[in-house]
Amino acid sequence: MLFSATRTVLLLTAAFLTPVYSAPMDLASRGSKASSTSHSGDGTFYQPGLGACGTDNTSHDLIVAVSHTLFDSYPGANPSNPNKNPICGKKLRATYGAKSVIVAVKDRCIGCATGDLDFTSTGFGKLASLDKGRIHGVKWQWV
């Protein structure tokens, strides 16, 4: 009986002291917790057309291109067919100062750093004057 109790204590100790390693998980793939995670970067705008998600867009659409790093590493991304990337169509709320806009991811931005967003002129215009060209400190989160 004593052997059994000692063995149980050892097994429990081993279970709690054994490190568990797993690959980091992108918060965007974790449902409701993802919306509480805030990202930040620069905001710019571009003239869209046929985007990496396989849809044709115009400057009037409330869409955004995210950095190629984020686009390519998004959970479930398939490098051989970016049109099927699960990030496509995912919405985010971008905020700059007191203004915010909700946009859908429809493209991939080669010149963007990880937290940067490249808006259509309509989306950018909801945050700042187009005359600015680039705005620093845009905060955003998935919705």
Rank of each mutant, 00 (worst) to 15 (best):
S59N: 06
L2N: 11
V103W: 06
S35H: 00
N57A: 13
S36I: 10
A52F: 01
K132R: 11
A98T: 01
L27M: 12
S35P: 04
F124K: 06
P79N: 13
P24G: 13
Y74H: 11
V138L: 09
A128F: 07
I63D: 04
G125M: 02
Y96V: 00
G41W: 05
Y46S: 02
V143W: 04
T58K: 06
T95G: 02
P79Y: 10
D72H: 00
Y96C: 04
A28F: 12
G51V: 07
R30Y: 12
A128V: 07
G89Y: 14
D107T: 07
L62N: 06
W142M: 09
S40P: 02
D118P: 03
Y21V: 13
N85G: 03
A113I: 00
V66M: 02
F3W: 11
V9Y: 13
N81A: 07
I87G: 09
D116C: 11
T69H: 10
R7G: 06
A23K: 15
S67W: 06
T37Q: 13
D118S: 08
V138S: 10
D56S: 15
A98G: 00
V138C: 10
K126P: 08
P19S: 07
S22W: 04
G76Q: 00
V101C: 03
P24K: 14
G31I: 05
G111Q: 13
F71E: 01
N57D: 15
F119V: 02
N78W: 00
G97R: 03
D61L: 10
I110E: 12
L2K: 12
F45I: 06
L117D: 10
K126F: 08
A128S: 14
M25Y: 07
D56W: 12
A128C: 06
D56Q: 15
G54I: 08
I102Y: 14
N78R: 05
L50F: 06
T37D: 12
S73H: 05
H39N: 11
L130I: 02
H60Q: 14
K84Q: 14
A65T: 08
V103M: 00
I110K: 12
F16D: 00
F71T: 02
K84I: 14
T114P: 03
V138R: 08
R93W: 12
V64M: 02
T95I: 03
A14K: 08
F45K: 05
D116T: 11
D61W: 06
N85H: 04
L17F: 01
P48E: 04
A128L: 07
T44M: 01
F119M: 01
S40E: 06
G43N: 02
A94C: 05
T44Q: 01
R30P: 07
L92I: 11
A15M: 11
G123L: 03
D56E: 13
D42Y: 05
S129A: 09
S121P: 04
H68T: 15
S36Q: 13
T122Q: 10
A98V: 00
T44C: 03
A5F: 15
Q47R: 14
G111E: 13
D107L: 09
A5Y: 15
P79Q: 11
A128M: 09
G111Y: 09
K90M: 15
T37I: 12
D118Y: 06
T120F: 11
Q141G: 13
K132C: 04
A113N: 04
H136C: 09
T44N: 03
P75I: 03
A23H: 14
F45T: 07
D56N: 15
L10P: 00
L17Y: 01
G43L: 01
